[in-house]
């Protein structure tokens, strides 16, 4: 936890528009430690997803990283030639997006999609990929017999778990999750995130968790950063940000979440 895996230094990202450049991310700096779960909260358009795209160098025109450094283990990803990016994407940094469950190829059996990724990144044979896929399916709680199914045969929650499983198959050091459960209902959301926590402990990867739901983020993350109009207005330990938020906007964000009225929080219905 002490050693920073990812260091974002003074990052600014612009979008080139007809009216000139729009700065979507303004001088943002933060660290993510090894094995740390770091949350980035904020409303639509605050720049949180733009940061995720910048880290993976997926920011495409009209987006442009103006200044800053993104250091993975001390190596600046922004200076890496395109040809060497493949060693980082998926291998070292995995990504799960909100629409990830729709990013599976509808024409390929899930098993083949595992193989596609594993062969490309590790040169794995079909048999090895199959074994790895079975192992990963077990981890995310889907019977291995379903590996030969097509994506449409799974529910949205299962598809999202399959994407997480494919992502984990390469044992990345950092997983970026951008609103991974926003499209799912609350029970499925909790099922998936509880699994992520378990897997995180087993594998020790770091997580950058992006969402607009502070309540959910507080259940999952060690540290939280709050973004407003491209700026990181507050960063701190989850306790401090939830109990004693320093910034006005953070307080507003907490207050804006619909809560159960007249109902003491269910401490743990199953305990």
């Amino acid at each position: 936890m002490n050693e920073a895996l990812l260091q974002i230094r003074d990052l600014s990202v612009d979008y080139f528009l007809d009216k000139g450049a729009f700065r979507a991310v303004k001088n943002v700096s933060f660290d993510i430690g090894r094995g740390e779960l770091f949350g980035l909260a904020g409303e639509s358009g605050c720049g949180k997803s733009t940061i995720a795209y910048a880290i993976t160098r997926l920011a495409k025109a009209p987006a442009w990283v103006a200044v800053g450094e993104i250091l993975l283990d001390g190596q600046d990803l922004l200076k890496l030639p395109e040809s060497r990016l493949q060693e980082v994407r998926w291998r070292r940094i995995g990504m799960v997006f909100q629409s990830a469950m729709n990013s599976l190829n509808p024409l390929m059996r899930v098993e083949a999609q595992f193989h596609d990724v594993l062969r490309r990144h590790t040169g794995s044979s079909r048999e090895k990929s199959r074994a790895r896929a079975e192992e990963m399916f077990k981890l995310v709680g889907i019977p291995a017999s379903r590996l030969t199914d097509y994506p449409h045969q799974f529910s949205g929650g299962m598809r999202q778990r399959i994407v997480i499983a494919i992502c984990l198959a390469l044992k990345p050091e950092l997983i970026i999750m951008d609103e991974p459960t926003t499209a799912l209902d609350v029970v499925v959301q909790r099922e998936i995130l509880e699994q992520v926590i378990d897997l995180q402990r087993g594998y020790g990867f770091s997580v950058l968790f992006i969402t607009h739901d502070l309540h959910l983020m507080a259940q999952l993350c060690h540290r939280i950063g709050v973004m407003l109009r491209g700026e990181l207005v507050e960063v701190g330990d989850v306790r401090q940000v939830s109990r004693a938020p320093a910034h006005d906007y953070t307080r507003k964000l907490w207050g804006a979440i619909p809560q159960l009225p007249g109902h003491p929080p269910v401490k743990d219905a199953i305990a």
Binding site: R190, Q195, I197, A218
Partner: peptide
């Protein structure tokens, strides 16, 4: 109700099998 996000109840590693 138990799945409504609650900041005072952090997820605990090792709990997922029980919840699932």
């Amino acid at each position: 109700l138990s799945a409504v996000p609650d900041p005072d109840r952090p997820f605990v590693a090792g709990d997922s099998a029980r919840f699932l």
